[in-house]
């Protein structure tokens, strides 16, 4: 109580007065004054000072509690000098094993060791995290057998100049056409600006004599017919789209050129599509 009031500025004077009342309100003194009318007679002192004999010296009027100071009851701690302190030398690092020497000179090397341990676990953790993420992502990609079927190999030796073949690739028709020199020349000379879908012939072939296309009309998905139509390339029979010998839309409803898939020439006579 006192500890609260003592801090409240202006009232401190009054409260300090009341604190004195509190401080003097020791039960022994009050008890001695008020309830006992007769003279207190103490028991004769005994020779041996036991707990019991000392207790009889204390006035008997209920509990005796001494409180003083701003914080209420106080305890007295007796310092024990016989406590055995545990030996921490097993847990100390070698440079600080002697508690009487300064730890400062060895602090950098001890910190360096600690950081090295943290860094090493960080390295292992980064490796583990990278592999976990990689494995997790690889479960989302296509499996090896699917990827193997996603490619098709076409032998170009069997396709004579001017001929076109159709193979199945990922469920779609794939056109491979061996263009003649005239066709190549014609397609290279076409004015790009006059086209609906502006693509030069060079953008659509890797080797000019080999034209590789996905045989799906960009209009509504029919399969065009090779060597047909006004431009000699492909002609879609469904709605009459005419494609030239570069697979570009020239006439009819289709909005875009025939799609060119990803392909590579594994050697001079083999093309791998996919």
């Amino acid at each position: 109580m006192m500890s609260v009031t003592a801090r409240s500025g202006l009232l401190a004077q009054y409260l300090s007065a009341s604190s004195q009342v509190v401080a003097t309100q020791l039960r022994p003194t009050v008890c001695l004054a008020a309830p006992l009318s007769s003279k207190i007679t103490l028991a004769p002192r005994k020779e041996n000072l036991t707990t019991e004999s000392l207790k009889q010296l204390v006035p008997k009027c209920g509990n005796v509690r001494v409180s003083s100071g701003p914080h209420g009851p106080m305890q007295v701690r007796y310092a024990h000098t016989d406590i055995q302190y545990p030996d921490f030398s097993d847990y100390r690092r070698q440079p600080v094993s002697d508690p009487k020497t300064s730890s400062e000179p060895s602090s950098v090397s001890r910190r360096a060791f600690t950081y090295a341990m943290v860094g090493a676990s960080g390295v292992v953790g980064a490796y583990a995290a990278k592999n976990i993420v990689q494995e997790l992502l690889s479960t989302m990609s296509a499996s090896a057998d699917v990827l193997a079927l996603a490619k098709v190999e076409v032998d170009l030796k069997t396709i004579a100049e001017g001929k076109s073949i159709c193979v199945k690739w990922r469920g779609k028709p794939l056109f491979v056409r061996h263009r003649t020199g005239d066709e190549i020349e014609t397609e290279k000379g076409v004015d790009v600006e006059s086209l609906r879908h502006k693509e030069h012939d060079d953008e659509r072939v890797k080797r000019p004599e080999w034209l590789i296309l996905i045989g799906v009309c960009t209009h509504l998905g029919c399969v065009p017919i090779a060597h047909a139509g006004e431009y000699g390339g492909y002609f879609c029979p469904c709605h009459g789209s005419h494609y030239d010998t570069s697979g570009r839309i020239r006439k009819g409803p289709a909005p875009e050129n025939l799609e060119v898939p990803e392909y590579t020439f594994s050697d001079d006579t083999t093309v791998v599509v996919g």
Binding site: S109, A116, G119, G122, V123, A126
Partner: peptide
């Protein structure tokens, strides 16, 4: 080692990545 790698957090993190 302490002054070059561990002192700055950026160098510490970078060395962890390179070490990984």
């Amino acid at each position: 080692v302490y002054n070059t790698i561990f002192r700055r957090s950026s160098a510490f993190a970078l060395s962890i990545l390179v070490g990984a």
